[in-house]
Design a protein around this nucleic acid. Structure first.
Lengths: 152, 152
DNA sequence: TTGACAAGTTAGTCACTACTAACTATATTA
DNA sequence: TAATATAGTTAGTAGTGACTAACTTGTCAA
């Protein structure tokens, strides 16, 4: 359960990378505190994580400096963010879940599902939303709303 | 990341419970070695896990005795197994993934997705497979086979 | 009945990820 | 520029979940 294949990121490290990506993306520089706030962890935990990511050459990091993604890090972060977006889209657009549940679930599931599954999911979303004969997502909404069974 | 809400099971403990459930189910008694083999962990790890599950009153466990589920444990295991089945079914019947990928992905995702999401997924599978006008799953298979893009 | 082997447990270790408390560095501002 | 607030780091600790090595218990056959 614990063994990480060489160069493979743990779920936590993926989360750190994702937050750094989003912080850099929104014009801000990623500082330790922002990362801590973004993930809801202590600043000390962030320092440890940054050291690990730096060792893997995914971020540029010097104590007391700002954090930026390396090219390698940006590629990794891109993958993670794309996975997240696809899952979130699936939960909202296909399953009709609310935005909060969708985001939370995507956050947790993105670490559990591989490229193959997420890729197929992306195709599925495309397939369903592009259909011309009938709005499946809408019909499904009718379907689950009709049933008064709780979501379980 | 690590904090478990009171009485909530970690992913590992869910795995242990799941294996015990399946072993008990197939007429066998669950012994420490069977559990170790089933999960691919050492026998020593199993002893530790059994102690934890026993403390939570999910299994009946005495050193050198056979392991059985308590009523509480059976209820928990049922939930986990049902989650697993729904996910596996989704991956195979809706996404058209192969059995091995489906099982592996279900094993990992089952710990990440809550009742609400999996419940909705169950409804979705029901909705799609019960449709009379058009076989969506089949059409999707045509769709993704046509595209020569790799699954990613 | 006893020796050998399988099954199970205990003890000790390690990696990971988090935490708090206390220290250091940087920035702001009076 | 000195005081102070904010940001960041270090050190020490804890929980989880895995491992190996070594010991104990149980069982079965000679």
């Amino acid at each position: 359960m614990n063994a990480m294949k060489r160069d493979q990121l743990s779920a936590s490290m993926e989360d750190y990378l994702e937050v750094i990506y989003h912080l850099s993306d929104s014009g801000m520089v990623a500082r330790s505190k922002d990362i801590a706030d973004g993930l809801g962890v202590s600043r000390a935990s962030v320092t440890g994580a940054l050291r690990v990511l730096s060792e893997k050459e995914l971020i540029n990091y010097k104590p007391y400096g700002v954090v930026t993604l390396t090219d390698k890090g940006r590629i990794e972060a891109d993958k993670i963010v794309r996975r997240h977006r696809i899952l979130e889209s699936f939960f909202i657009d296909i399953l009709g879940l609310d935005a909060v549940t969708a985001k939370e679930s995507a956050c947790r599931a993105e670490h559990a599902l591989g490229q193959q599954v997420v890729g197929r999911l992306r195709q599925y979303i495309e397939f369903i939303t592009a259909r011309v004969d009938g709005d499946i997502a809408f019909e499904f909404k009718q379907f689950y709303r009709k049933r008064q069974v709780p979501d379980a």
